[in-house]
Amino acid sequence: MNIFRLAGDMSHLLSVILLLLKIRTTKSCAGISLKTQELYVVVFLARYLNLFTRYYSFYNTVMKLVFIATSVCIVWYMRFHKVVKQTYNKDLDTFRHYVVIPPCFLLALLVHHEFTVMEVLWTFSLYLEAVAILPQLILLQRTRNIDNLTGNYIFLLGAYRALYLLNWIYRFFMEKAQARWISWISGLVQTALYADFFYYYIKSWKNNEKLKLPA
């Protein structure tokens, strides 16, 4: 464990806790993409299968359970909670997210480290996570006023993988870890998708004005 990976995991944990708090306290999921949340459930289920087969550390196990539980909980709130589901921007959240699943799975069948079920699913989860934020970013462009909690949620979510990139650089040079091309490229694509959001988020934070993405 290094400071970059710990910071990344904490940023990721904070992002899902922030989102859950926003939904629970405001009883609203306005501005949040259900499609992105559902993609994240698939990402975590596909990636954390080794939860039952390999024990790395207490931390690793607890964090996997937390990420699976929170992502399922958020989808439950947005789909079934009688008050929250009324606030879902169904007409704006129109990205057909099931379209990205087959290509990611096919790519995982073609490009992977080993051709085993666990490895292909793990690789699939990396590719899917790289594009999972797309529905949310598209919804943001369509949302007139983005509330602070949502903006902070997306910033922390983007920051976590950016910190993981630093973690991989650290591990490659300091721990002489092997090259992890699949993780690196997926992580780069994922972080690159946040580039314009980061730009507008930091600009709004500097000028102390409302976050607004150009349509």
């Binding site: 990976r5 995991d9 990721h12 080794n50 390999r54 790395y56 550390s57 690793n60 964090m63 996997k64 990420f67 992977h112 480290h113 080993e114 490895e119 793990w122 993981y164 973690n167 870890a177 092997q178 090259a179 992890r180 993780s183």
Partner: peptide, 10 residues
């Protein structure tokens, strides 16, 4: 292709 990296990350 290389052996799969250790999955100790989240």
């Amino acid at each position: 292709c290389q052996s799969s990296p250790v999955k100790d990350e989240l």
